[in-house]
Computed example of a mutant assay.
Amino acid sequence: MRSTSSFFHFLIQKCNRKTRRKLKFSKELLVVDSTKIIVGIGQLPWAPLKGTRAGVKLNVAFHPSVGQPHRVIQSTGNHHDFRSSEELFDAAIINVADRAYAKCKRFDEYV
């Protein structure tokens, strides 16, 4: 089984120029995901989670063709991903994200 990091790199490799030409994508791809960094409550008392833990979350929109982040949003660890999606997503780019960023209302907008 692949780790999250190696799976992410595998997906990025599949989004190369040859694949985009073969699939005839008219736009660039933007990969969106988040990671939570958890520490003891004493280190981040302003970002409590559960019990004696605290944490921050980084939501990242990554541009595979450039190999750099497009946008990064930081928040407390209990901030839900879909709240950051409006700031991360770009209408001029095909956005690829997991279901944590999904809103039924957004699917209606796509139609």
Rank of each mutant, 00 (worst) to 15 (best):
R20Q: 14
L49Y: 04
G77H: 06
T35H: 02
F25W: 13
C104V: 10
I37W: 09
T4H: 12
F7P: 09
S6T: 10
L49W: 04
I94T: 02
A61P: 00
A102H: 10
D33P: 00
L11W: 00
V56I: 15
K57I: 03
N16V: 05
F10K: 14
N16T: 06
T52D: 06
W46S: 02
C104Y: 13
S3L: 04
A54M: 04
I73F: 11
Q13C: 09
N95Q: 07
T35S: 08
L23N: 05
K24Q: 14
D81P: 00
K14E: 12
I73Y: 07
F8C: 12
G77C: 03
I41T: 07
G77I: 01
C15R: 01
L88N: 00
K27H: 07
K57M: 05
N59W: 03
L49K: 06
V72R: 01
R99A: 14
V60S: 01
R106K: 07
Q43R: 15
T35D: 04
H80M: 03
S65R: 08
S75T: 12
V39P: 03
D108I: 11
R20L: 11
N59D: 06
H79F: 03
K57Y: 01
S84E: 11
A61M: 04
M1Q: 05
L44M: 14
A54W: 01
R71H: 01
V32E: 02
T35Y: 02
G77D: 04
P45Q: 07
N59C: 11
I38R: 14
D81Y: 02
K22P: 00
R53V: 09
Y110I: 09
P64A: 09
N78Y: 08
G51I: 08
V32I: 15
S85D: 10
V111I: 11
F107P: 01
F82D: 12
V56L: 15
D90S: 09
L58H: 02
A47Q: 00
A100G: 15
F62W: 08
R21K: 13
F62C: 02
P48I: 05
E28D: 12
A61V: 03
K103P: 04
